[in-house]
Amino acid sequence: DTLHVTQDGKHIELRGLSEEEIKLVEELLRRGRKVEEALKIIEELRK
């Protein structure tokens, strides 16, 4: 699936995420994380 995010005035499209990963990214962003940080966390969880 694809998640569309706008952060720091930039539109970012995150592709290839599972539904659970999207929920996790959304939660991390709500808690003030940056998109880059959220993606690093997803990458770690995929290992």
Rank of each mutant, 00 (worst) to 15 (best):
I41V: 10
I42Q: 00
T2V: 14
E44Y: 05
Q7M: 01
L29D: 01
L17G: 01
K47C: 09
H4G: 06
V5N: 04
A38N: 00
R33S: 14
K23R: 13
G9W: 00
H4T: 10
K10A: 08
I22G: 08
E21W: 03
I22E: 05
R33L: 14
R30D: 11
R33D: 14
L3K: 07
G32I: 02
I22D: 02
L14Q: 06
A38S: 07
G9S: 03
L14Y: 01
R33W: 13
K10M: 14
L29V: 07
E44N: 07
L39P: 00
G16P: 05
R30H: 12
G32C: 05
G9D: 06
H11N: 11
K40Q: 15
R31T: 14
T2K: 09
E44I: 09
A38P: 00
L24G: 04
K47W: 07
E19G: 11
L28M: 13
E43V: 05
R33Y: 12
L39A: 08
K40N: 13
E21N: 02
D1F: 00
E19N: 13
G9Q: 03
V5S: 04
L17V: 04
H11A: 06
H4W: 01
L14G: 07
L17P: 01
T6Q: 10
V25I: 08
I42P: 00
E36T: 09
G16I: 02
S18A: 10
E27K: 07
G16R: 01
L24C: 12
E43M: 05
G16F: 05
E27S: 08
V5Q: 04
D1K: 04
E20M: 12
E43Q: 04
K10N: 09
L45D: 08
L39R: 05
S18P: 02
I42T: 02
R33Q: 14
I12Q: 05
R31A: 14
E43G: 04
R33C: 10
R15C: 05
E26D: 08
E43A: 04
E36F: 08
G16N: 10
R46I: 06
D8G: 06
L29S: 02
E37P: 01
K10T: 07
K40D: 13
K47P: 11
R33I: 15
E20A: 12
E19K: 11
R46V: 07
K40V: 12
Q7C: 05
L45V: 10
H11G: 05
H4Y: 00
K23W: 12
R33T: 15
Q7D: 06
H4E: 11
V25R: 00
T2G: 14
L29N: 03
D8W: 00
G9H: 04
V5T: 07
G9T: 03
K10L: 13
D1V: 01
E13V: 04
A38V: 15
L24T: 13
R30N: 12
K34R: 15
E37A: 11
L24N: 06
H4P: 06
I12M: 04
V5E: 05
H11D: 15
A38C: 09
V5Y: 00
R46S: 07
L45H: 11
G16Y: 08
E27A: 09
H11M: 09
R30C: 10
V35W: 02
K23N: 09
R31Y: 10
I12R: 01
K10P: 04
L3F: 01
G9R: 01
E44F: 06
T2P: 08
E44L: 09
E19L: 12
K47E: 11
E20D: 13
S18W: 08
L3A: 09
E20F: 13
L45S: 08
R46T: 05
I22C: 07
R30Y: 06
T6I: 14
L14R: 05
I41N: 06
K34F: 09
K40Y: 10
E44H: 07
R30V: 10
E27H: 09
D8V: 02
I42W: 01
L14F: 01
I12T: 04
R15Q: 15
T2S: 14
L39E: 06
R31P: 05
V25Y: 04
